[in-house]
Design a protein around this nucleic acid. Structure first.
Lengths: 208, 208
DNA sequence: ATTCTACAGTAACATTTATCACAGAAGATT
DNA sequence: AATCTTCTGTGATAAATGTTACTGTAGAAT
Protein backbone atom coordinates (compact mmCIF):
# COMPACT_ATOMS: atom_id res chain seq x y z
CA UNK A 1 0.00 0.00 0.00
CA UNK A 2 1.35 3.33 -1.13
CA UNK A 3 0.16 5.51 1.71
CA UNK A 4 1.01 3.14 4.47
CA UNK A 5 1.76 4.56 7.88
CA UNK A 6 5.28 3.25 7.53
CA UNK A 7 5.86 5.49 4.50
CA UNK A 8 4.44 8.54 6.17
CA UNK A 9 6.15 7.95 9.51
CA UNK A 10 9.36 6.23 8.46
CA UNK A 11 10.94 6.49 11.89
CA UNK A 12 8.26 4.47 13.64
CA UNK A 13 9.28 0.94 14.50
CA UNK A 14 7.30 -1.89 12.94
CA UNK A 15 5.83 -2.86 16.28
CA UNK A 16 4.69 0.72 16.83
CA UNK A 17 3.07 0.82 13.40
CA UNK A 18 1.19 -2.35 14.23
CA UNK A 19 0.11 -0.97 17.57
CA UNK A 20 -1.11 2.23 15.98
CA UNK A 21 -3.07 0.36 13.35
CA UNK A 22 -4.70 -1.71 16.08
CA UNK A 23 -5.55 1.14 18.44
CA UNK A 24 -6.02 4.17 16.22
CA UNK A 25 -8.98 5.18 14.12
CA UNK A 26 -8.50 6.64 10.68
CA UNK A 27 -10.83 9.54 10.00
CA UNK A 28 -11.33 11.85 7.02
CA UNK A 29 -12.28 15.51 7.15
CA UNK A 30 -13.10 17.92 4.37
CA UNK A 31 -11.38 21.23 3.77
CA UNK A 32 -13.02 23.88 5.90
CA UNK A 33 -13.75 21.61 8.85
CA UNK A 34 -12.85 23.01 12.23
CA UNK A 35 -11.17 20.09 13.95
CA UNK A 36 -10.74 21.80 17.26
CA UNK A 37 -11.79 25.03 18.90
CA UNK A 38 -10.16 27.02 21.64
CA UNK A 39 -11.59 25.89 24.96
CA UNK A 40 -12.69 22.42 23.84
CA UNK A 41 -11.48 19.45 25.78
CA UNK A 42 -9.12 17.22 23.90
CA UNK A 43 -9.54 13.48 23.98
CA UNK A 44 -7.34 12.45 21.08
CA UNK A 45 -4.03 13.13 19.47
CA UNK A 46 -4.12 13.26 15.69
CA UNK A 47 -1.42 11.98 13.37
CA UNK A 48 -1.84 13.54 9.96
CA UNK A 49 -1.51 11.03 7.14
CA UNK A 50 -2.91 13.14 4.29
CA UNK A 51 -3.88 16.76 3.62
CA UNK A 52 -3.13 19.94 5.47
CA UNK A 53 -4.24 21.69 8.65
CA UNK A 54 -3.68 25.21 9.88
CA UNK A 55 -3.29 25.93 13.56
CA UNK A 56 -4.53 29.28 14.85
CA UNK A 57 -4.54 31.23 18.04
CA UNK A 58 -7.94 32.86 18.45
CA UNK A 59 -8.27 36.42 19.68
CA UNK A 60 -11.16 37.55 21.85
CA UNK A 61 -12.39 39.77 19.04
CA UNK A 62 -12.55 36.88 16.58
CA UNK A 63 -9.03 37.20 15.21
CA UNK A 64 -7.50 34.04 13.75
CA UNK A 65 -3.78 34.39 14.08
CA UNK A 66 -1.88 31.75 12.12
CA UNK A 67 0.64 29.79 14.15
CA UNK A 68 1.69 26.99 11.81
CA UNK A 69 0.77 24.30 9.34
CA UNK A 70 0.46 20.59 10.01
CA UNK A 71 1.22 18.15 7.23
CA UNK A 72 1.44 14.38 6.67
CA UNK A 73 3.96 12.82 9.02
CA UNK A 74 3.28 15.41 11.69
CA UNK A 75 1.12 15.66 14.77
CA UNK A 76 -0.29 18.50 16.77
CA UNK A 77 2.06 19.17 19.67
CA UNK A 78 -0.54 21.12 21.52
CA UNK A 79 -3.06 18.34 21.30
CA UNK A 80 -0.41 15.94 22.59
CA UNK A 81 0.43 18.17 25.49
CA UNK A 82 -3.17 18.81 26.39
CA UNK A 83 -4.12 15.20 25.86
CA UNK A 84 -1.90 13.96 28.62
CA UNK A 85 -3.39 16.34 31.15
CA UNK A 86 -6.83 16.28 29.55
CA UNK A 87 -6.67 20.03 29.34
CA UNK A 88 -8.62 22.48 27.26
CA UNK A 89 -7.31 23.34 23.85
CA UNK A 90 -5.42 26.59 23.57
CA UNK A 91 -5.73 26.71 19.82
CA UNK A 92 -8.01 26.28 16.85
CA UNK A 93 -7.34 23.78 14.08
CA UNK A 94 -8.83 24.19 10.63
CA UNK A 95 -8.57 21.76 7.71
CA UNK A 96 -7.35 23.60 4.61
CA UNK A 97 -6.91 20.57 2.35
CA UNK A 98 -8.92 17.36 2.80
CA UNK A 99 -7.16 15.35 5.48
CA UNK A 100 -6.93 11.83 6.81
CA UNK A 101 -5.88 11.65 10.41
CA UNK A 102 -5.12 8.73 12.67
CA UNK A 103 -6.77 9.37 16.00
CA UNK A 104 -4.84 8.10 18.99
CA UNK A 105 -6.71 7.86 22.26
CA UNK A 106 -5.31 9.55 25.34
CA UNK A 107 -4.29 6.42 27.18
CA UNK A 108 -2.32 4.97 24.28
CA UNK A 109 -0.41 8.17 23.68
CA UNK A 110 0.74 8.04 27.26
CA UNK A 111 1.41 4.31 27.42
CA UNK A 112 3.49 4.14 24.26
CA UNK A 113 5.93 6.70 25.61
CA UNK A 114 7.27 4.04 27.91
CA UNK A 115 6.96 1.14 25.51
CA UNK A 116 8.12 2.49 22.17
CA UNK A 117 11.35 4.34 21.80
CA UNK A 118 10.39 5.60 18.34
CA UNK A 119 7.13 7.01 19.70
CA UNK A 120 8.97 8.79 22.47
CA UNK A 121 11.37 10.29 19.97
CA UNK A 122 8.57 11.36 17.69
CA UNK A 123 6.73 13.09 20.51
CA UNK A 124 9.83 14.92 21.68
CA UNK A 125 10.69 15.95 18.16
CA UNK A 126 7.14 17.18 17.67
CA UNK A 127 7.40 19.34 20.77
CA UNK A 128 10.73 20.69 19.70
CA UNK A 129 9.81 21.62 16.16
CA UNK A 130 6.48 23.20 17.12
CA UNK A 131 8.05 25.17 19.92
CA UNK A 132 10.61 26.45 17.45
CA UNK A 133 7.94 27.43 14.99
CA UNK A 134 6.03 29.36 17.60
CA UNK A 135 9.23 31.10 18.64
CA UNK A 136 9.73 32.11 15.03
CA UNK A 137 6.22 33.53 15.07
CA UNK A 138 7.14 35.51 18.17
CA UNK A 139 10.22 36.84 16.36
CA UNK A 140 8.11 38.00 13.50
CA UNK A 141 5.52 39.90 15.47
CA UNK A 142 7.98 41.15 18.09
CA UNK A 143 10.82 42.31 15.87
CA UNK A 144 9.51 42.75 12.34
CA UNK A 145 7.18 45.15 10.59
CA UNK A 146 4.17 44.21 8.55
CA UNK A 147 5.89 44.13 5.18
CA UNK A 148 8.46 41.62 6.38
CA UNK A 149 5.80 39.60 8.14
CA UNK A 150 3.76 39.48 4.94
CA UNK A 151 6.74 38.25 2.94
CA UNK A 152 7.39 35.59 5.56
CA UNK A 153 3.74 34.59 5.51
CA UNK A 154 3.75 34.12 1.74
CA UNK A 155 6.97 32.17 1.87
CA UNK A 156 5.62 29.89 4.54
CA UNK A 157 2.47 29.30 2.54
CA UNK A 158 4.38 28.36 -0.56
CA UNK A 159 6.69 26.10 1.46
CA UNK A 160 3.66 24.37 2.91
CA UNK A 161 1.89 23.80 -0.38
CA UNK A 162 5.02 23.23 -2.40
CA UNK A 163 3.86 25.69 -5.04
CA UNK A 164 4.43 29.34 -5.79
CA UNK A 165 0.78 30.42 -5.97
CA UNK A 166 -1.10 31.60 -2.94
CA UNK A 167 -4.80 31.17 -3.56
CA UNK A 168 -6.17 33.43 -0.88
CA UNK A 169 -7.92 36.77 -0.87
CA UNK A 170 -6.25 39.77 0.71
CA UNK A 171 -8.90 39.66 3.41
CA UNK A 172 -8.00 36.12 4.40
CA UNK A 173 -4.33 36.98 4.61
CA UNK A 174 -5.10 40.08 6.66
CA UNK A 175 -7.10 38.01 9.14
CA UNK A 176 -4.27 35.54 9.63
CA UNK A 177 -1.78 38.34 10.23
CA UNK A 178 -4.26 40.25 12.38
CA UNK A 179 -4.16 43.39 10.29
CA UNK A 180 -6.59 44.98 7.83
CA UNK A 181 -7.30 44.15 4.22
CA UNK A 182 -6.22 47.57 2.99
CA UNK A 183 -2.80 47.21 4.56
CA UNK A 184 -2.28 43.85 2.88
CA UNK A 185 -3.44 45.23 -0.50
CA UNK A 186 -1.07 48.16 -0.23
CA UNK A 187 1.93 46.10 0.82
CA UNK A 188 1.28 43.53 -1.89
CA UNK A 189 1.10 46.31 -4.46
CA UNK A 190 4.51 47.52 -3.32
CA UNK A 191 5.86 43.98 -3.55
CA UNK A 192 4.51 43.75 -7.08
CA UNK A 193 6.30 46.98 -7.96
CA UNK A 194 9.49 45.51 -6.56
CA UNK A 195 8.95 42.51 -8.81
CA UNK A 196 8.49 40.04 -5.98
CA UNK A 197 4.98 38.91 -6.83
CA UNK A 198 2.35 39.02 -9.52
CA UNK A 199 -1.16 39.80 -8.35
CA UNK A 200 -4.29 38.18 -9.71
CA UNK A 201 -7.77 37.89 -8.31
CA UNK A 202 -7.68 35.48 -5.38
CA UNK A 203 -4.15 34.56 -6.27
CA UNK A 204 -0.64 35.78 -5.60
CA UNK A 205 2.21 34.37 -7.65
CA UNK A 206 5.58 34.42 -5.94
CA UNK A 207 8.28 35.30 -8.46
CA UNK A 208 11.42 34.93 -6.35
CA UNK B 1 17.05 19.96 55.30
CA UNK B 2 14.69 22.80 54.54
CA UNK B 3 15.43 23.28 50.88
CA UNK B 4 15.56 19.66 49.96
CA UNK B 5 14.73 18.66 46.43
CA UNK B 6 11.69 16.86 47.76
CA UNK B 7 10.26 20.11 49.05
CA UNK B 8 10.89 21.97 45.84
CA UNK B 9 9.74 19.16 43.57
CA UNK B 10 7.05 17.50 45.68
CA UNK B 11 5.77 15.35 42.83
CA UNK B 12 9.06 13.56 42.27
CA UNK B 13 9.15 10.03 43.62
CA UNK B 14 11.69 9.24 46.33
CA UNK B 15 13.67 7.05 43.98
CA UNK B 16 13.79 9.83 41.44
CA UNK B 17 15.02 12.28 44.06
CA UNK B 18 17.78 9.87 45.00
CA UNK B 19 18.71 9.37 41.37
CA UNK B 20 18.83 13.12 40.78
CA UNK B 21 20.99 13.67 43.83
CA UNK B 22 23.36 11.00 42.59
CA UNK B 23 23.60 12.14 38.97
CA UNK B 24 23.01 15.86 39.08
CA UNK B 25 25.37 18.66 40.00
CA UNK B 26 24.19 21.58 42.06
CA UNK B 27 25.55 24.89 40.81
CA UNK B 28 25.11 28.49 41.91
CA UNK B 29 25.00 31.56 39.68
CA UNK B 30 24.88 35.23 40.57
CA UNK B 31 22.26 37.66 39.38
CA UNK B 32 23.26 38.98 35.99
CA UNK B 33 24.86 35.76 34.76
CA UNK B 34 23.91 34.72 31.26
CA UNK B 35 23.26 31.01 31.64
CA UNK B 36 22.68 30.37 28.01
CA UNK B 37 22.94 32.27 24.76
CA UNK B 38 21.06 31.81 21.52
CA UNK B 39 23.03 29.50 19.27
CA UNK B 40 24.93 27.73 22.05
CA UNK B 41 24.78 23.98 22.19
CA UNK B 42 22.97 22.61 25.19
CA UNK B 43 24.43 19.79 27.17
CA UNK B 44 22.37 19.98 30.34
CA UNK B 45 18.88 20.49 31.58
CA UNK B 46 18.58 22.75 34.61
CA UNK B 47 16.17 22.28 37.48
CA UNK B 48 15.83 25.53 39.38
CA UNK B 49 15.96 25.06 43.15
CA UNK B 50 16.47 28.69 44.19
CA UNK B 51 16.33 32.15 42.65
CA UNK B 52 14.86 33.41 39.41
CA UNK B 53 15.73 33.30 35.72
CA UNK B 54 14.32 35.20 32.79
CA UNK B 55 14.08 33.59 29.37
CA UNK B 56 14.43 35.84 26.33
CA UNK B 57 14.19 35.58 22.61
CA UNK B 58 17.03 37.56 21.08
CA UNK B 59 16.48 39.73 18.02
CA UNK B 60 19.12 40.21 15.37
CA UNK B 61 19.44 43.86 16.33
CA UNK B 62 20.18 43.03 19.95
CA UNK B 63 16.61 43.06 21.22
CA UNK B 64 15.88 40.99 24.32
CA UNK B 65 12.26 40.05 24.15
CA UNK B 66 10.99 38.56 27.41
CA UNK B 67 9.29 35.20 27.05
CA UNK B 68 8.86 34.03 30.64
CA UNK B 69 10.28 33.56 34.12
CA UNK B 70 11.66 30.38 35.61
CA UNK B 71 11.37 29.81 39.33
CA UNK B 72 12.17 27.12 41.90
CA UNK B 73 10.40 23.88 41.08
CA UNK B 74 10.57 24.60 37.36
CA UNK B 75 12.83 23.68 34.49
CA UNK B 76 13.56 25.17 31.14
CA UNK B 77 11.36 23.40 28.58
CA UNK B 78 13.48 24.63 25.73
CA UNK B 79 16.65 23.28 27.25
CA UNK B 80 14.91 19.96 27.76
CA UNK B 81 13.74 19.83 24.19
CA UNK B 82 17.08 20.84 22.78
CA UNK B 83 18.95 18.59 25.15
CA UNK B 84 17.41 15.45 23.75
CA UNK B 85 18.36 16.31 20.21
CA UNK B 86 21.54 18.12 21.22
CA UNK B 87 20.33 21.12 19.33
CA UNK B 88 21.32 24.74 19.53
CA UNK B 89 19.55 26.95 21.98
CA UNK B 90 16.79 29.10 20.56
CA UNK B 91 16.73 31.37 23.57
CA UNK B 92 18.79 33.33 26.07
CA UNK B 93 18.58 32.74 29.81
CA UNK B 94 19.61 35.43 32.29
CA UNK B 95 19.77 35.08 36.07
CA UNK B 96 17.82 37.91 37.69
CA UNK B 97 18.06 36.70 41.29
CA UNK B 98 20.91 34.49 42.53
CA UNK B 99 20.03 30.93 41.61
CA UNK B 100 20.91 27.38 42.48
CA UNK B 101 20.26 24.92 39.71
CA UNK B 102 20.55 21.17 39.55
CA UNK B 103 22.23 20.27 36.29
CA UNK B 104 21.00 17.07 34.70
CA UNK B 105 23.14 15.58 31.95
CA UNK B 106 21.59 14.78 28.61
CA UNK B 107 21.68 11.02 28.92
CA UNK B 108 19.95 10.96 32.31
CA UNK B 109 17.17 13.26 31.19
CA UNK B 110 16.42 10.82 28.41
CA UNK B 111 16.85 7.65 30.41
CA UNK B 112 14.62 8.71 33.29
CA UNK B 113 11.70 9.29 30.98
CA UNK B 114 11.36 5.53 30.67
CA UNK B 115 12.25 4.70 34.24
CA UNK B 116 10.48 7.30 36.35
CA UNK B 117 6.84 8.03 35.89
CA UNK B 118 7.10 11.22 37.95
CA UNK B 119 9.94 12.49 35.77
CA UNK B 120 7.92 11.82 32.64
CA UNK B 121 4.98 13.72 34.07
CA UNK B 122 7.18 16.58 35.13
CA UNK B 123 8.70 16.91 31.66
CA UNK B 124 5.32 16.80 29.95
CA UNK B 125 3.89 19.33 32.37
CA UNK B 126 6.91 21.57 31.78
CA UNK B 127 6.34 21.46 28.03
CA UNK B 128 2.67 22.17 28.46
CA UNK B 129 2.98 25.12 30.78
CA UNK B 130 5.81 26.77 28.82
CA UNK B 131 4.00 26.30 25.55
CA UNK B 132 0.98 27.94 27.09
CA UNK B 133 3.04 30.85 28.33
CA UNK B 134 4.57 31.43 24.94
CA UNK B 135 1.11 31.31 23.39
CA UNK B 136 0.03 33.97 25.84
CA UNK B 137 3.00 36.04 24.70
CA UNK B 138 1.82 35.60 21.11
CA UNK B 139 -1.64 36.79 22.14
CA UNK B 140 -0.19 39.89 23.65
CA UNK B 141 1.94 40.97 20.74
CA UNK B 142 -0.53 39.81 18.10
CA UNK B 143 -3.75 41.19 19.52
CA UNK B 144 -2.93 43.86 22.06
CA UNK B 145 -1.52 47.36 21.95
CA UNK B 146 1.45 48.59 23.88
CA UNK B 147 -0.47 49.98 26.85
CA UNK B 148 -2.14 46.63 27.49
CA UNK B 149 1.12 44.80 26.96
CA UNK B 150 2.83 47.07 29.47
CA UNK B 151 0.13 46.42 32.07
CA UNK B 152 0.48 42.71 31.46
CA UNK B 153 4.25 42.96 31.76
CA UNK B 154 4.04 44.71 35.12
CA UNK B 155 1.51 42.24 36.39
CA UNK B 156 3.66 39.33 35.36
CA UNK B 157 6.66 40.86 37.06
CA UNK B 158 4.83 41.35 40.31
CA UNK B 159 3.42 37.82 40.12
CA UNK B 160 6.92 36.48 39.64
CA UNK B 161 8.48 38.39 42.53
CA UNK B 162 5.45 38.24 44.77
CA UNK B 163 5.65 41.93 45.45
CA UNK B 164 4.04 45.07 44.05
CA UNK B 165 7.21 47.00 43.28
CA UNK B 166 8.96 46.73 39.96
CA UNK B 167 12.57 47.76 40.39
CA UNK B 168 13.48 48.37 36.79
CA UNK B 169 14.24 51.45 34.75
CA UNK B 170 11.97 52.46 31.91
CA UNK B 171 14.76 51.55 29.52
CA UNK B 172 14.96 47.99 30.79
CA UNK B 173 11.23 47.54 30.45
CA UNK B 174 11.32 49.03 26.96
CA UNK B 175 14.01 46.55 25.91
CA UNK B 176 12.03 43.57 27.14
CA UNK B 177 8.92 44.74 25.29
CA UNK B 178 10.95 45.71 22.23
CA UNK B 179 9.81 49.30 22.21
CA UNK B 180 11.48 52.60 23.13
CA UNK B 181 12.07 54.17 26.49
CA UNK B 182 9.98 57.24 25.63
CA UNK B 183 6.95 55.12 24.83
CA UNK B 184 7.23 53.33 28.16
CA UNK B 185 7.64 56.61 30.02
CA UNK B 186 4.57 58.07 28.31
CA UNK B 187 2.39 55.05 28.95
CA UNK B 188 3.51 54.78 32.56
CA UNK B 189 2.68 58.44 33.08
CA UNK B 190 -0.81 57.80 31.76
CA UNK B 191 -1.14 54.82 34.06
CA UNK B 192 -0.09 57.00 36.96
CA UNK B 193 -2.77 59.53 36.01
CA UNK B 194 -5.30 56.71 35.97
CA UNK B 195 -4.14 55.81 39.47
CA UNK B 196 -2.80 52.39 38.51
CA UNK B 197 0.81 52.97 39.52
CA UNK B 198 3.07 55.27 41.47
CA UNK B 199 6.32 56.20 39.76
CA UNK B 200 9.64 56.55 41.55
CA UNK B 201 13.17 56.47 40.30
CA UNK B 202 13.99 52.91 39.23
CA UNK B 203 10.78 51.75 40.75
CA UNK B 204 7.14 51.37 39.82
CA UNK B 205 4.62 50.63 42.54
CA UNK B 206 1.53 48.79 41.41
CA UNK B 207 -1.51 50.16 43.19
CA UNK B 208 -4.20 47.79 41.96
C1' DA C 1 29.97 71.52 46.96
C1' DT C 2 30.74 70.34 42.32
C1' DT C 3 30.62 67.35 38.72
C1' DC C 4 29.07 63.39 36.41
C1' DT C 5 25.96 59.97 34.99
C1' DA C 6 21.82 57.49 34.59
C1' DC C 7 17.09 58.16 34.65
C1' DA C 8 12.77 60.41 33.68
C1' DG C 9 9.58 63.83 31.41
C1' DT C 10 7.95 65.93 27.37
C1' DA C 11 7.43 68.43 23.00
C1' DA C 12 7.86 68.05 18.07
C1' DC C 13 8.01 65.37 14.35
C1' DA C 14 8.30 60.99 11.30
C1' DT C 15 6.67 56.61 10.27
C1' DT C 16 3.75 52.82 10.44
C1' DT C 17 -0.54 50.94 10.79
C1' DA C 18 -5.64 51.32 11.13
C1' DT C 19 -9.92 53.15 9.57
C1' DC C 20 -13.19 55.31 6.50
C1' DA C 21 -14.86 56.17 2.07
C1' DC C 22 -15.44 55.19 -2.35
C1' DA C 23 -14.65 53.39 -7.10
C1' DG C 24 -13.76 50.04 -10.42
C1' DA C 25 -12.96 45.15 -12.00
C1' DA C 26 -13.86 40.11 -12.07
C1' DG C 27 -16.94 36.65 -11.61
C1' DA C 28 -21.37 34.77 -10.39
C1' DT C 29 -26.39 34.98 -10.79
C1' DT C 30 -30.54 36.23 -12.82
C1' DA D 1 -27.16 41.85 -20.94
C1' DA D 2 -28.20 43.45 -16.51
C1' DT D 3 -27.53 42.88 -11.80
C1' DC D 4 -25.08 41.46 -7.65
C1' DT D 5 -21.47 40.20 -4.97
C1' DT D 6 -16.80 39.80 -3.85
C1' DC D 7 -12.40 41.31 -4.39
C1' DT D 8 -9.01 44.87 -5.19
C1' DG D 9 -6.97 49.61 -5.45
C1' DT D 10 -6.35 53.97 -3.52
C1' DG D 11 -6.88 58.52 -1.34
C1' DA D 12 -7.74 60.91 2.96
C1' DT D 13 -7.40 60.87 7.59
C1' DA D 14 -6.70 59.20 12.35
C1' DA D 15 -4.26 56.83 15.82
C1' DA D 16 -0.39 54.44 17.63
C1' DT D 17 4.25 54.01 17.89
C1' DG D 18 9.06 55.34 16.98
C1' DT D 19 12.64 58.99 16.79
C1' DT D 20 15.04 63.20 17.86
C1' DA D 21 16.08 66.65 20.80
C1' DC D 22 16.25 68.83 24.83
C1' DT D 23 15.43 69.57 29.97
C1' DG D 24 15.55 68.63 34.72
C1' DT D 25 16.46 65.71 38.62
C1' DA D 26 18.35 62.11 41.79
C1' DG D 27 21.97 59.96 43.28
C1' DA D 28 26.90 58.60 42.78
C1' DA D 29 31.57 60.01 42.37
C1' DT D 30 35.00 63.42 42.89
Amino acid sequence: MQNSLKNIFPNFSNELIETIEKNGTLQDFEAGTILMRTGQYIKNTALITKGKIKIYREGEDGGEFLLYYLQPGQACAISMICTVKSEKSQIMAKVVEDVSVMMIPLQSMDKWMMEHRSWYEFVIETYRSRFEEVLEVVDNIAFRSMDERLEFYLKRHSDACGCSEVNLSHQEIATELNTSREVVSRLLKKMEQRGLVKLNRNQIELLK
